[in-house]
């Protein structure tokens, strides 16, 4: 008994020390590359730290065009994903609960099949000699790219919206709306959508984050997106890549921060009700 009382605190202190070491090493591993890329991005001018690399990137018309292209693509993808997922998730909850595992399995497939394989499949299936020659024109290729992005974001979008629908009583709301004479579109976009707004926004921000940095699809479909531009900068400039990485990290952090704020906001409204 006596031995235990003196040994236990010492063991705990030692455990504590090891915990701090593990935690500190982990934090160092996570943070040092961020410091490194920031410091490196400031080195463009020979004699002093400066933001020259940033002005060089932000002033590059190529950057502006590809960033705008990817931003527009990400918004198109969000709309496409929403049109695809919200009615489906709603309908499965309302009328076809037995289909849930099947639909869920399909939405997870884009995580199982490597992106490059899906892109390869698109190129083979929608080329100029196929039944749906989407890669034959620029607009068609843009649409195909948006569809590809919608596929990539399907797992996240579906889970976000389905989780949102779980917190509301889909059946009762639908019946109430129908008894007041609402049609399906009204129910979907004026009743379900506002109720799962925060969930939709979380899915949307994650989708934007994925699309902005995506490389494989855009490169293989040969569209002027941000991903291929970043690779080009990496091969041709010295300090600009680090500045780009800092910008990318800031954007990712901002979007993830918005998601966190959203989930906090939704908890708030639910408690208040």
């Amino acid at each position: 008994m006596d031995q235990m009382t003196t040994a236990a605190p010492r063991a705990r202190r030692r455990r504590n020390l090891w915990s701090w070491i593990a935690f500190t090493l982990g934090v160092a591993y996570f943070v040092l590359p961020l410091i490194g890329m920031f410091e490196f991005s400031l080195r463009k001018r020979r004699d002093a730290y400066s933001f020259d690399a940033y002005t060089s990137i932000l002033g590059d018309p190529q950057f502006q065009q590809t960033f705008l292209y990817s931003l527009v693509m990400s918004l198109v993808t969000v709309v496409l994903g929403l049109l695809l997922v919200l009615p489906t998730a709603f309908w499965v909850r309302l009328k076809l609960p037995a289909m849930r595992p099947v639909v869920e399995f399909i939405t997870l497939l884009p995580l199982v099949i490597p992106v490059i394989v899906i892109a390869f499949g698109y190129i083979r299936m929608f080329n100029t000699s196929s039944f749906l020659p989407m890669t034959g024109s620029i607009m068609g290729t843009n649409i195909l790219l948006a569809i590809g992005y919608a596929t990539l974001s399907l797992p996240y979008m579906y889970r976000a919206i389905d989780n949102g629908l779980r917190t509301i009583d889909v059946g009762t709301l639908t019946e109430a709306a129908q008894s007041l004479g609402a049609g399906w579109l009204t129910i979907l976009y004026r009743i379900m959508l506002p109720n799962v707004y925060t969930a939709v926004l979380s899915g949307a921000f994650l989708t934007i984050s994925i699309v902005l940095g995506e490389y494989v699809f855009a490169a293989l479909l040969d569209r002027p997106a941000l991903g291929p531009y970043m690779v080009w900068v990496g091969g041709n400039k010295a300090y600009e890549p680090a500045a780009l990485a800092v910008i990318a990290f800031a954007v990712t952090w901002g979007l993830m921060g918005l998601i966190q704020a959203m989930s906090r906001l939704s908890k708030h409204t639910r408690v208040a009700r």
């Binding site: 996570f30 040092l32 590359p33 961020l34 410091i35 490194g36 890329m37 410091e39 490196f40 991005s41 994650l206 984050s209 994925i210 940095g213 995506e214 490389y215 991903g227 970043m230 690779v231 990496g234 890549p241 680090a242 780009l244 990485a245 990318a248 990290f249 990712t252 952090w253 993830m256 998601i259 966190q260």
Partner: peptide
């Protein structure tokens, strides 16, 4: 959550810079 999404090309740049 951020780091898991900070992959792809920028991650390579960050490590080259470090």
């Amino acid at each position: 959550g951020v780091a898991a999404n900070f992959a792809g090309v920028p991650l390579a740049f960050a490590f080259i810079a470090t």
